[in-house]
C-alpha cells in the first residue's frame, strides 16, 4: 500500500501512546531489572555497587533447584490437565442442542472470578478443619492438612489453577471448534469415520492453532500468573513445596527487599520462559496447520 499520510508527524503521533506504554511498562522496568541483577544494594537502595554475577550465584543456590522442579511439575500438570478437561467439555458442549448457550456460560463463568477471590473460596472449601471439601476428603480417609503437607498444598494449588485455566481454555476451544466447517466433519462421516476417528483425525488437527495458542497461554499463566493463587493458598509453603520461580522472585524482591537477587531471578526466569516458548513454537510449527 502506498503511504497514506503526507506528514511524518501524524503516524509518529498515532503510534506514540503505544510506544509510551511499552517503554514505561515493559522496557524501562525490564532494563531496571537487568541493571539490578548485576548490582548489590541494601533494601533502601543505598550503597549500590556492581557485583558481577554474584546475584546469579546466590539465585542458583539454595531453594532455586527445588523451585525449578516445582515450577516444571506445576506447569506440566496444570497445562495438560486443564487442556484435557476444557477440550473434552468444549466438544461435549458443541454437540448439545438448545442448552448449548447455558452450558457455555456455565463453563466460562469460573474465568470471570478473579484469581484471588477464587483462591479465597477454595481456601474456605478446603480449610483443614471446617471446609466442606476437607471434610469430604477426611470422609474418604485422606488425612487432609495442606498447611503441613507439601503434596496436598501442591495438589490444591494445581487443582485451583486448573479450575480457573480450564474456563479460559474452554472459551478458545469452543471458538476453535465453531470455526471448523461442519462440512469437513460431515465429509469425514461420509468417508466412513466414526466419532472418535473424526475427532482425532480431522477435528483435533484443525484445532492445531488453537491448541498452540492455549498451550502457550497456559504455560505463561503457570510460569507468571500463578502468583495470586499461591499467595492466598500457601505462600509458597510448606517447605517450599509450592514455591514457583515467580513466587520466589516476589518473595525475594518485595518481602525480603533483595532487589538484586530478584533481578537476577527474573532474568533467569525470562531466559527460561523464552527458551520454552521457542521450543514450543518449533515443535508445533512442524505440525500445526494454519487455515
Amino acid at each position: 500500500m502506498p503511504p497514506v499520510f503526507k506528514h511524518r508527524l501524524l503516524p509518529a503521533a498515532l503510534i506514540l501512546p503505544e510506544v509510551v506504554v511499552v517503554v514505561i511498562f515493559f522496557i524501562w522496568p525490564s532494563g531496571k531489572a537487568l541493571l539490578e541483577a548485576f548490582r548489590q544494594s541494601n533494601a533502601f537502595g543505598l550503597g549500590a555497587r556492581f557485583s558481577g554475577l554474584a546475584n546469579f550465584g546466590s539465585a542458583l543456590h539454595g531453594g532455586y533447584l527445588q523451585a525449578v522442579e516445582v515450577t516444571a511439575t506445576f506447569t506440566a500438570i496444570t497445562t495438560l490437565v486443564s487442556m484435557g478437561i476444557s477440550l473434552f467439555l468444549a466438544v461435549q458442549v458443541e454437540s448439545t442442542g438448545r442448552l448449548r448457550p447455558v452450558y457455555r456460560t456455565l463453563f466460562i463463568w469460573t474465568y470471570a472470578v478473579p484469581g484471588a477471590i477464587g483462591a479465597a473460596l477454595w481456601l474456605f472449601l478446603f480449610e483443614p478443619k471446617v471446609g466442606p471439601g476437607a471434610r469430604a476428603l477426611e470422609a474418604l480417609g485422606v488425612h487432609w492438612n495442606f498447611a503441613l503437607s507439601g503434596t496436598q498444598a501442591f495438589a490444591l494449588v494445581c487443582a485451583l489453577t486448573i479450575w480457573q485455566q480450564s474456563a479460559y481454555n474452554f472459551v478458545f476451544f469452543s471458538a476453535g471448534l465453531q470455526s471448523i466447517p461442519d462440512a469437513v466433519v460431515e465429509a469425514a462421516t461420509m468417508d466412513g469415520a466414526g466419532p472418535v476417528t473424526r475427532f482425532w483425525k480431522v477435528v483435533f488437527p484443525l484445532l492445531g492453532p488453537t491448541v498452540l495458542f492455549v498451550t502457550v497461554s497456559d504455560v505463561l499463566a503457570a510460569l507468571f500468573g500463578s502468583f495470586a493463587v499461591i499467595d492466598v493458598i500457601s505462600q509458597g509453603g510448606p517447605g517450599g513445596s509450592t514455591t514457583t520461580l515467580v513466587y520466589m522472585l516476589y518473595r525475594d524482591g518485595f518481602q525480603n527487599g533483595d532487589v538484586g537477587l530478584a533481578g537476577a531471578e527474573s532474568m533467569l526466569l525470562f531466559v527460561l520462559a523464552g527458551a520454552l516458548l521457542v521450543v514450543q513454537f518449533k515443535v508445533f510449527n512442524r505440525r500445526v496447520h494454519y487455515r
Binding site: 462440512a183 469437513v184 465429509a187 469415520a193 492445531g208
Partner: peptide, 26 residues
C-alpha cells in the same frame, strides 16, 4: 454413499493424496 460438498470440504491438513485416500485408509 459418496458425496461431493458445495465448498468441497477438503481436509485442509492433509495432502491431496491423503484427502483422496482417507476413506480407503479407514
Amino acid at each position: 454413499v459418496a458425496m461431493v460438498f458445495q465448498n468441497y470440504a477438503l481436509y485442509p491438513h492433509m495432502t491431496v493424496a491423503d484427502n483422496i485416500g482417507f476413506s480407503l485408509k479407514l
